[in-house]
Amino acid sequence: MNTKQLIEENNQKRKHLTKENKDYYEDMLVYIRLAYDKSEEETEEVLSEMLDHLLIAQEEGKTAEDIFGHDKKAFADEIICELPKMLTKNQLSLMFMGIFFFLATALGASGLFDTIAYHLFNFGSLYKTYYLGTESVNLVLSIIFSLLFLVLILQYLKWSSIKNLNSVVEFLVTWMIGVMTSGSFFVIYYFMPDFGYTYQVPAYIKIIIGVGFAIIGYIINKRR
């Protein structure tokens, strides 16, 4: 039985929970699944065990709070703390998948943007000049920043899944993360001086390479 089947089974079984138990269990489920450095298989196994337990206990008239305690965060933290770390190989392929999808999106979007701007609005050019030095530094910095923001967002989601924030606070925090992300990319690209070899890249090549990276990312995800 693999992880995907377990997740699917969990989705089906969860429907049998009462509203109160479902809310409690799902908060815990989101919180535990967001612990990104843990073995996915073990995580899903223990989640399914606890769901089975809760379903039987529910029949006996007990609530999730009776079973797992009133402090769901403390209990979930205890579970996370005992879960084994994810296999490094799996973690690495996840990271590479992320990097390939990131490159695919950046290249594809830039290629598409150039094509549309040129043909529809007669703006810019299909051939852009790039500086090898500038681009490689930008690339490395972008990857580092993306990973940092990813960790930040995961931490935030984990934290907010247990706290019941009001929607204004939630909106503000999401907005702030968004501004910080796009802001820092803008700062990197705008203020980076031009240096290194220059070369010209036509827009369609960018799209082709972008699609190629997306396919590699997809294959890595399939084989994971």
């Binding site: 223990v46 065990e49 606890m50 797992f68 579970i79 703390c81």
Partner: peptide, 11 residues
């Protein structure tokens, strides 16, 4: 408490 066996089983 029933739930407390799960962290122990994991350990």
């Amino acid at each position: 408490s029933e739930g407390s066996i799960y962290p122990i089983l994991l350990r």
